[in-house]
């Protein structure tokens, strides 16, 4: 008995030991990041003097008063992530419903095409997309005359969101299709007999039953928009310009002419990370569900 217990303990000690050993580098890097943001300089994990000056970007622009404050940039990032998430979820849910439930010509081809698109390296499309956005810019109002998102053209939040939506959709459609596939046909048939239209079936019966899927996709899309760099960087202009988002803002610290202030980069980086961390803390269960592909307790 005693021996058994000991063995069990030994087993779990080994397991935990291995887990800690593997997680430690990641944890230390985060710790380093935090220490760095509050230090003038660091030597490894050791601070060579504590300071709050790295966080001064919170109340004054480090590039001078002509530039956007961090709060506007954060708001931009938030708008970008929200707009993109909303569009991705709605469009994915609608097309996934059609792909899951309806028969139409080209359905199979469409499915495999989305899979290929999902694997397509987005960087290769940057230049053509640039021209598309420039063209959209010329469209009145929609191009660059909309409030909040600026429009859907070049150097607007809406434009960046549109491009990111396009890259996110194949993934979203596949995830949502998996969730729809798991809902029994009977429920849908029953709703049709009860008097619902196809759209009502989708909205009133199926959507509430794939909430875990919607949650998971929303979180995933939101986080990937929040952290996106290449697309916002390519399709917006200017240091801390009107449409800049956080990831691009950080990049501004790393110019060639001036010495990079790594401590400040770390501070802005940590600032960008905080919402994601909070978000993840509350939603990790739904997020992990995305690869489970199942509606818990549904059907």
């Amino acid at each position: 008995m005693v021996l058994n217990k000991f063995r069990l303990n030994l087993k779990s000690i080994l397991a935990y030991g291995a887990l800690i050993a593997f997680s430690m580098p990641i944890f230390l890097v985060f710790l380093w990041l935090v220490i760095t943001t509050f230090s003038t300089r660091t030597e490894g994990l050791e601070s060579l003097g504590w300071t709050l000056s790295n966080w001064s970007f919170l109340w004054k622009s480090p590039f001078g008063p002509k530039f956007q404050s961090i709060w506007i940039v954060t708001l931009n990032t938030f708008i970008l992530a929200t707009v993109m998430t909303t569009i991705v979820v709605f469009v994915s849910a609608m097309s996934a419903y059609a792909l899951s439930r309806m028969k139409f010509a080209g359905r199979k081809g469409f499915l495999s095409a989305t899979l290929i698109l999902h694997a397509f390296p987005s960087v290769t499309l940057l230049i053509p997309i640039y021209f598309v956005l420039r063209w959209i810019t010329k469209v009145p109002i929609i191009g660059q005359g909309l409030p909040l998102i600026g429009g859907f053209g070049f150097n607007t939040i809406g434009g960046v969101a549109l491009v990111m939506v396009a890259f996110q959709l194949p993934f979203g459609i596949w995830i949502m299709k998996g969730f729809f596939d798991n809902i029994s046909w009977d429920m849908e048939r029953s709703a049709l007999i009860d008097g619902a239209s196809r759209f009502q079936v989708w909205w009133k019966i199926l959507m509430p039953n794939i909430k875990p899927g919607i949650a998971a996709l929303s979180i995933f899309a939101f986080i990937s928009a929040w952290n996106a760099y290449i697309i916002p960087f390519t399709f917006t202009v200017g240091r801390a310009g009107k449409s800049t988002v956080l990831s691009v803002y950080i990049q501004n610290f790393m110019s060639e002419s001036v010495m990079t202030e790594w401590n400040m980069v770390a501070a802005v980086g940590l600032f960008q990370l905080i919402p994601v961390l909070i978000f993840f803390f509350f939603t990790q269960e739904a997020l992990l569900n995305i690869y489970g592909g199942g509606a818990k307790g549904g059907a």
Partner: peptide, 12 residues
């Protein structure tokens, strides 16, 4: 009116 084998009640 129809009753399904799985009853097909709306879980939510």
């Amino acid at each position: 009116g129809m009753v399904f084998q799985s009853y097909a009640l709306y879980p939510h």
